[in-house]
């Protein structure tokens, strides 16, 4: 497979995880592309304007990329902490619309500011890797790390609190869960993942502009999670990988590919209302691997 496409798919999976985190807590936040755009802009600005980061070698040093990631995480984290306090008072569709508004305001501001390059954006972002395969390996490692963290989160106390809030916020609150802080945690984690992903994407794409964080991206990333499933971290990863690859894989059908893409996200939720990947699916899969216990194995006498 083409390493460039693989890299895009991995980035899609990371963005899917970013949407998944608040959704696991029952919060439909579509702010991911906004934080993604902030991460990308941070990387684009730092790597093109700060000579100290460029290093002496022929390629851009990976340590600088890691530094950019840390700064992007800091910025998006602080921003999410402040904004989250305010927007998370909203529920359901209201939260979704407020976060769409945030993303759009951010896009229009980036489009009009001088130092972000206006409508053209920032060009010539230096490359830390010689080939797309290098990016793919780096992003795969990042994805694996974040998947592992998500897996840990699903099993520990804050993660379980998030699931409780998703199932019933009032009941969770009555059980002594601090719902405001838990929701904020999910929102901030989502922003961190999106911001870090933006840094990688900016280097990979070589240029960055305001269009990369728009409404379309909000909805596409949401489609990753709804399609893949929001009960376990594997869902958004699966959805992100598949739906990012789909328009490319459909290239042979030519002009029809976006129509087919639309049809897939239209039909997906009808047949898989909980997403394709669900915990039940795992259980039945595990059962099948172990083999169905027969009556004899259970010690039942004939």
């Amino acid at each position: 497979m083409d390493a460039g496409l693989l890299e895009q798919m991995l980035l899609g999976a990371l963005l899917g995880l970013s949407v998944y985190l608040p959704l696991r807590c029952g919060q439909l936040s579509l702010a991911t592309p906004g934080f993604f755009a902030i991460g990308g802009t941070v990387a684009a600005l730092l790597s093109t304007r700060v000579p100290a980061l460029a290093g002496s070698g022929s390629t851009y040093p990976i340590t600088s990329v890691l530094l950019e990631m840390a700064l992007a995480a800091l910025l998006t984290g602080v921003l999410a902490l402040g904004l989250g306090r305010v927007v998370l008072r909203l529920r359901g569709i209201y939260l979704a619309i407020a976060t769409i508004a945030l993303v759009e305001i951010l896009r229009v501001v980036t489009l009009n500011l001088e130092f972000t390059g206006g409508a053209l954006g920032i060009f010539g972002i230096p490359q830390p890797f010689d080939s797309a395969a290098g990016y793919a390996a780096f992003t795969l490692a990042l994805l694996a790390l974040i998947c592992w963290l998500c897996d840990r989160l699903e099993k520990n106390r804050p993660g379980r609190a998030m699931a409780a809030i998703r199932d019933d916020e009032l009941a969770a609150a009555s059980q002594g869960i601090n719902t405001a802080d838990t929701k904020l945690l999910a929102f901030v984690l989502s922003a961190l993942v999106a911001g870090i992903t933006g840094v990688v994407a900016a280097h990979f794409l070589n240029s960055w502009n305001a269009k990369l964080g728009n409404f379309d991206a909000s909805i596409t990333t949401l489609a990753f999670v709804v399609f893949g499933g929001s009960r376990t971290w594997l869902g958004p990863v699966f959805g992100g990988l598949l739906l990012t690859a789909l328009p490319e894989l459909l290239r042979p059908v030519g002009d029809l590919r976006l129509i087919v893409f639309g049809a897939v996200i239209l039909v997906g939720p009808l047949f898989f209302p909980k997403g394709v990947i669900t915990p039940e699916l795992f259980k039945s899969f595990k059962r099948r691997i172990r083999g169905t216990p027969t009556a004899a194995a259970q010690g039942v006498k004939p």
């Binding site: 909805i219 949401l222 489609a223 709804v226 129509i259 639309g262 996200i265 209302p273």
Partner: peptide, 12 residues
């Protein structure tokens, strides 16, 4: 889920 299905219809 209608957010996604209607979006799919829009894309089509």
């Amino acid at each position: 889920l209608a957010l996604i299905t209607s979006l799919g219809a829009g894309v089509i």
